[in-house]
């Protein structure tokens, strides 16, 4: 038997996903990047959006992922319903204004 750590270990990428926020979304949430442990059941980006309470608080109750927010998994656009795997990089992208 090994001892239980006194301090909860920070999640590592073997069991977690790296969540990244950009632009207005990053500033609203107050963080840019976070390691989030995956639950035992399949987790999607849409699930994480609710779990991390990333909505702007204007909707009553836990708001789902708004259609204006796009999801990228491992730096490629992906459906918000895609099941995540440990080590994935998940990004929430507010409306794009390039060029």
């Amino acid at each position: 038997m090994h001892r239980r750590p006194v301090v909860a270990p920070s999640p590592d990428l073997a069991t977690a996903v790296r969540v990244r926020l950009f632009a207005a979304l990053r500033e609203r949430a107050g963080w840019a990047e976070r390691l989030v442990p995956l639950a035992a059941s399949p987790t999607s980006a849409a699930d994480l959006w609710q779990r991390l309470a990333l909505d702007d608080g204007s909707a009553a109750g836990a708001a789902g992922l708004p259609p204006t927010i796009r999801v990228a998994i491992n730096q490629a656009f992906a459906s918000a319903d895609t099941p995540l795997r440990p080590g994935d990089e998940v990004a929430f992208l507010p409306p794009i204004t390039g060029g």
């Binding site: 207005a24 656009f77 992208l93 409306p95 794009i96 204004t97 390039g98």
Partner: peptide, 22 residues
């Protein structure tokens, strides 16, 4: 590229920054 490459504009005016909505 204006709609599908991940870039975001913020306008600075009067010392304040505003993210461009679209």
């Amino acid at each position: 590229l204006k709609h599908h490459a991940p870039f975001w504009k913020r306008e600075w005016s009067g010392g304040r920054g505003t993210w461009v909505a679209g």
